[in-house]
């Protein structure tokens, strides 16, 4: 990657982390409620995935703020959604787990584990049907690879030779359940191996993730059918704000934090791209400001109108209008 992109990835990772810490703070203040799943520790994955898979469609889950921002959704509209405001991505009706923006080919945002995988398969079918080369990326956790929908998706994507990139964020846990206590595999790519090419990557390394996904994207473009990429990563916080995460040992957390993706990307910028401290600080300040502006915007925004309750149940102004 070139220097400009490396800087942008670093900027988005810093922005992502600051955004998440700010969301946490506002959750504790009561401005944000419901389930809030923080992406802290997994920023390399969320940001590089969006930057590498820059053109196709993306389907993801509920730990999705940083991805949405890296995809191009404004931090303001994402923060406002977390605050449940009318100016939010989903006008306050979806909240933290449900961020969608078809204009960025970003389909969220799904809170039913594994539920979006068959949707991604269908979308990949549509893209192939339309002769598009961009393909589709489905992002999911290690826990999702135990769902029936996951295996059905592997099978259909493979049988139909669909341009679908399966990106597994393996952070070792599904809420409090250690992945190896409910599946025989440490590496979930084992499950995909019979169906398709699989790749592994260090999910705490933004450059490695970017390169791996670029290679995977090329494989889709070349018509080789679905591909499975497994990225090993670590979430620093509990599963959501209601989970203290106490089932993990201090040592375990220490080891994973020693691989901090932001520190590592900073090192890359300094050593490989000769970025000086002043420029790094400029990027960090810019990220800080973007988060502050997002919070100010969310705070100042109005609540949705009560009429919003009945809007969008059916499509208005579409064919077969039901009013």
């Amino acid at each position: 990657m070139n220097k400009l992109l490396a800087e942008e990835i670093y900027y988005l990772m810093v922005l992502g982390r600051k955004f998440e810490f700010s969301a946490k703070e506002h959750y504790m203040k009561g401005d944000i409620s419901g389930f809030l799943h923080l992406d802290i520790g997994q920023e390399a994955l969320s940001v590089s995935a969006m930057k590498a898979f820059d053109r196709g469609d993306v389907f993801s889950g509920y730990r999705v703020h940083v991805m949405a921002i890296a995809r191009g959704l404004s931090p303001k509209s994402v923060m406002a959604e977390l605050f449940g405001k009318a100016t939010g991505v989903s006008r306050g009706k979806g909240g933290s787990m449900h961020l969608y923006d078809p204009s960025h080919f970003f389909y969220g945002g799904d809170a039913i584990v594994g539920g979006h995988l068959p949707n991604a398969v269908g979308c990949a079918y549509a893209r192939k049907y339309q002769g598009s080369e961009e393909g589709v990326m489905a992002i999911f956790g290690d826990g999702a690879t135990n769902c029936g929908a996951f295996f059905e998706s592997l099978n259909i994507a493979s049988a139909q030779n669909l341009p679908l990139l399966f990106l597994c964020e393996n952070n070792g846990y599904a809420i409090g359940t250690k992945i190896t206590s409910v599946t025989p595999f440490l590496k979930q790519s084992k499950k995909a191996e019979p169906y398709m090419r699989t790749m592994e990557v260090d999910g705490m390394d933004a450059v490695a993730v970017y390169d791996a996904l670029k290679e995977a994207q090329k494989s889709l473009h070349d018509g080789h059918g679905p591909i499975f990429v497994e990225a090993f990563t670590c979430r620093y916080e509990g599963h959501s704000m209601s989970d203290p995460g106490s089932y993990r040992t201090q040592l375990e957390m220490q080891i994973c934090k020693s691989q901090d993706p932001i520190d590592r990307m900073k090192k890359v910028l300094i050593e490989q791209y000769q970025v000086d401290t002043a420029s790094l600080e400029t990027l960090e300040d810019r990220a800080e400001r973007a988060v502050e502006e997002a919070v100010d915007f969310a705070l100042a925004s109005p609540e949705p109108d009560e009429a919003e309750l009945y809007q969008n149940i059916f499509c208005q102004g579409c064919a077969n209008v039901i009013s």
Binding site: K85, S90, G92, G95, P304, E306, L309, Y310, I313
Partner: peptide, 9 residues
């Protein structure tokens, strides 16, 4: 209606 996120709604 599907249950919305915003507390008021």
């Amino acid at each position: 209606v599907p249950i919305p996120y915003n507390r008021k709604l």
